[in-house]
Design a protein around this nucleic acid. Structure first.
Lengths: 227, 227
DNA sequence: AATACAATCCGTGTATACAAAATACACAAA
DNA sequence: TTTGTGTATTTTGTATACACGGATTGTATT
C-alpha cells in the first residue's frame, strides 16, 4: 500500500463515513490489494484518526463483502475469485434485466430525454479515449435506467454489485475495439425502453452483461498468465 | 422494549457479533419497533457490555438497512413503509425466479431428494398449525433451492431480502386458508425443477411471491385500520 | 400568558487505556 | 539442523474518558 491514501476532509461527515468511503475506494481501485491485511493502528495513523472510526468503517466493509474478518486476527481485503465474479455477474444480469423491464413501465418523459442524452454523451466519451470519462458516462447512463425503476432497493443492490466489478470494468472499458458494440447496445436499450418493448430491452441488457462477463474472464485469465 | 432482550452467551463469538445477532433478531421479530431509538448506553447496560460492541453492531445493521442513522442523534429502527416492502418484493420476485431457473440447471440428485422431503415436511408442518414450525419448514425448503444454485452471492442477497419480510411473512403463514395453495405451489416448483422446466418453475416462483405480496399488503392495510 | 434566552442535561462522536490472544523471535536441547 | 519452549511484541477486543452538539427545561421579560 502506498502512502497516497488520504482522508478527504472536504466532506462534512462523521469520520467513520469518511474512512469507510476512503477504504472502499482504495479497495475498489486496487490500491489496497486482495489479501492485504487491514491493521487498525496503521490505518489510524495513516489517516490521522483514532482506531474507533477505522473499526466502524471495517464493520461496514465486512457486511458489504469487501473485507473478510478472521477472528482474533483482524480484517483483510477480500480475495476476488473467478467464481465470485461469475456469481456477481449472474445476479447482476437478472437485476439489470429487471431494471430495464421496470423502466419500460415507469420511465418519465424527462428521464427518457436524459437517457437519450446519456447515450450521446457516452458515444462522445468514447471518442476522447479517456477511460475515466468513458466509465463515468457509462455509470451515468446505467444510473438513469435503474433510477427510472423508482425502486430504491434495486438501485442500492445494483450499485453494490457494480462496485464489486469496478476494477475489471475499468480495464474492459479501455478496450477501444469494444466501443462501437457498447454504443449500439446502449442505443438498442434506449429505443426499446422508449417503445416499451420489454422483451428486446431485457434481452439486450442481458447481452450487455454477457459481453462484460466474457471480457472480464478473458482479462483474469491473461492476468494469471502474466503472474 | 421489554427486558427479555438478552445476549446469548452460548456462542463463542466477538461481542459485536453477538450484539448484532441479538439486535437483528429483536428488530425482525418486532421486539424493537420501527422508529424506536437505539441508545447506545441503554443497550449497553441492558446487554451488559460496553458501548463499543453496540456501536459496531449498529454499523452493520445500518448497512443492512434495518436501522437508519440520524446525524448527531444516533440510530433508530428503520420504518417499514408499504413502498419499501413492495420494492423488496419486486427484487425478490426476480431473484426467486432466477434461483429456480438456475436450480433447474444445477441441482444435484441429493438436493432434489432433500427438496422433495422439504415439500413433505412443509405439508406435515401445516397440519400441526404451529406457525413457527410452518415458517421453519418454509424457510428450509426455499433455502434448499437457492443453495442449489451454487451462487453464494445470490444466497446472501435472497436471505437479506427475506429478512425484511420476516414479521409479515410470519402472519401470512398463520393463515390456514392459504396453506393448501402453498403446498401445491411448492409441489409444482419441485416437479418443474425435477423436469428442468425453467419456464414453469420461474412462473410459479413469481406467482408464489405475488401471493405473498397480496397477503402482506392486505395485512398492512388492516393493521392501519386497527390503529 | 407567551416568548426569548440561558443553563443544564443527555447522547453521540472520537480518542485512549487496558486486557487477552496470537504471532514472532530467540535460545536451548536433541 | 531441527524442534521445542519461553518471552517479547504486536494486534485485536473491550471498556472508559472526554468533548461537542442538540434538546430540554426553567426563568425572566414583555
Amino acid at each position: 500500500m502506498q502512502d497516497n491514501l488520504q482522508v478527504n476532509m472536504d466532506e462534512f461527515l462523521p469520520l467513520r463515513d469518511v474512512v469507510f468511503n476512503t477504504l472502499r475506494q482504495a479497495i475498489l481501485t486496487g490500491e489496497l490489494k486482495p489479501g492485504e491485511r487491514l491493521m487498525e493502528i496503521h490505518l489510524a495513523n495513516r489517516l490521522g484518526v483514532s482506531r474507533t472510526p477505522i473499526r466502524e468503517a471495517i464493520r461496514k466493509l465486512e457486511l458489504e463483502g469487501l473485507v473478510i474478518m478472521i477472528p482474533r486476527r483482524g480484517a483483510e481485503v477480500a480475495k476476488i475469485t473467478e467464481k465470485s465474479l461469475q456469481d456477481v455477474l449472474e445476479v447482476r444480469r437478472a437485476l439489470d434485466a429487471l431494471s430495464v423491464e421496470l423502466a419500460c413501465e415507469r420511465i418519465s418523459e424527462e428521464e427518457l430525454i436524459q437517457l437519450k442524452n446519456a447515450c450521446d454523451e457516452f458515444e462522445k466519451a468514447t471518442h476522447t479515449k479517456d477511460p475515466k470519462k468513458i466509465a463515468k458516462a457509462d455509470v451515468e447512463l446505467h444510473d438513469i435506467i435503474v433510477k427510472a425503476t423508482g425502486n430504491s432497493r434495486l438501485v442500492q443492490m445494483v450499485n453494490n454489485l457494480s462496485e464489486q466489478m469496478y476494477r475489471y470494468r475499468f480495464e474492459y472499458i479501455k478496450d477501444a475495439s469494444k466501443h462501437q458494440r457498447l454504443i449500439d447496445e446502449h442505443r438498442v436499450i434506449y429505443e426499446s425502453i422508449r417503445n416499451k418493448d420489454k422483451t428486446t430491452a431485457s434481452e439486450t441488457a442481458k447481452l450487455h452483461i454477457d459481453n462484460q462477463e466474457t471480457s472480464v474472464m478473458e482479462q483474469i485469465h491473461s492476468e494469471r498468465k502474466i503472474k
